[in-house]
Amino acid sequence: MNLYELKKVKKRYGSLLALDIPSLTLAEGNFYVVYGPNGAGKTTLLNLLAFLDKASEGEVLFHNSQPDIKDVTMVMQNPYLFKTTALGNVSRGLVFRSINKNKIEKMVMPVMKQLGIWEMRNREARSLSGGEKRRVAIARAMVLDTKALILDEPISHLDNIHVNLIENAISDMAGNTKKTIIMTTHDLSKAHKLTSNVIYLLNGKITDKPLWNMFRVNLTTPEKVPPVVRDGAPNGVKKAGVGQGVEIYVATDRTGSALTAIDPKDIIVSRQVIHSSALNNLRGRIVSINEINGLVDLVVDTKVFFHAFITRKSFSDLHLSVGEEIFLTFKASAVEVF
């Protein structure tokens, strides 16, 4: 059953169209991660889903009807803690619901313990560290019996210990309750680690193209055309610096500023340089190996970081490990330009 249904939703701020979603449904009990670069419209979308803001056009239906704000709770990117204790903060939503004081303590204790903040329950919120404050804000939302829990960048700017604590708590909640959880993140690997329901948002629009290996680039016409281009003579090949002096070729007619993305599945990994029609050959070192949706995600440092997905068989055949030097090869046409 659908919890949310968005129909022809547009959100404008003055003349700026911040969000344009023709159709989106979010099922009850599922865990969604919204991924997109800064300014993609993630927070705008979350504010609409939390009913903190209204769409300029279109409808946001909740259970096919009008929403009740008590059914949804949201943890903001930079959450505000009330000027009281950690316990007072975590209890606040339950106090709003007029729940008995003795019952409140029984309800908040397990969540606060899970997030490692029970011991600091009597400390003033203002005396807590950034990570502790974030956990208090998350606990405050988790204790509420809402149908949807919305988290805006809950793990950004936190150390690994706090990230793991929060991720585990969210995963537990996603696995053990019927809550629909919607969160945003900047870390695409984390997004895929947490759920298979990743929504890609770019320039206020949902895209089905995976937004991996994203770079903001300046597309220019190369002075020297690479030999393969000269031989094959395709038009519209541009050069783009992706940072640290690393340049890639992009098959596009566009010039100037643009966002580019490369699907990690389109990158060929090899131990030696491959001579082929593919224009992009980068040498790098493996810095991390993860598993994502049954594939092996290699994070490769080529001065800038690239993700490349290979099958377990290829990974095993190539005998790859962290620190090893490899080559990444991909076609100029594999680079999506936005």
Binding site: L52, I69, T73, M76, Y80, R92
Partner: peptide, 25 residues
């Protein structure tokens, strides 16, 4: 702080409770 009222509302506060939270802060 601009976030006070919004935070209270996301926690299920009524408009009156949200305003009381704001005044309390």
């Amino acid at each position: 702080d601009e976030r006070i009222e919004g935070t209270a509302l996301t926690l299920g506060a009524t408009k009156f409770q949200a305003l009381m939270s704001l005044s309390g802060e």
